[in-house]
């Protein structure tokens, strides 16, 4: 995967922790992925619907993937997942839960409510980085993702 042969993918990261956000960007800094970030569920919904400060398409490209933390201030990750998966325009976007919790009930709940995969944040940075890179590679190169026309994808 190099910058020259692949289009720039956008992955929406919904994550309130700045440190974790730094770890995400660091782990994915050598990839073609752009990583717009929302810290709250409500903000993520605005982003996905192109509302408010995200009204201009250039400011909010439709993401290929959503990485979602479960513990968010305000509307939490579970609510956001439910809203994305019950929205006709949004539910085709794969949502990957990336969280601290490996509580079997959380895992079960998320898959029940349409999560496309579930990943636990490793404490060791090396494992974390490897896991993230594999995740991105899997979803963006191994998988075939739906194409959408309602919002334009930015290109390289």
């Amino acid at each position: 995967m190099t910058e020259h042969t692949h289009p720039m993918f956008s992955i929406l990261l919904v994550e309130d922790s700045d440190e974790d956000y730094m770890a995400f960007t660091r782990a994915l800094r050598d990839t073609v992925v752009s990583l717009p970030r929302c810290t709250r569920g409500e903000e993520a919904l605005d982003y996905l619907h192109g509302r408010g400060r995200f009204a201009a398409p250039a400011h909010a490209p439709r993401p290929a993937l959503v990485l979602l933390d479960l513990n968010l201030p305000g509307m939490d990750g579970r609510e956001l997942l439910t809203m994305i998966k019950s929205d006709e325009h949004l539910k085709s976007i794969p949502v990957v839960i990336v969280t601290t919790s490996h509580n079997p009930r959380d895992v079960e709940w998320c898959y029940q409510h349409g999560a496309n995969s579930y990943q636990v944040k490793a404490i060791g940075y090396d494992q974390f980085r490897d896991a993230m890179r594999r995740l991105v590679e899997y979803w963006l190169t191994v998988c075939v993702l739906p194409t959408t026309t309602d919002r334009k994808w930015p290109t390289g």
């Binding site: 922790s17 440190e19 974790d20 601290t100 404490i123 940075y125």
Partner: peptide, 8 residues
């Protein structure tokens, strides 16, 4: 979460 931050 902060622990992971410390480690990272």
């Amino acid at each position: 979460e902060p622990l992971r931050g410390l480690h990272h």
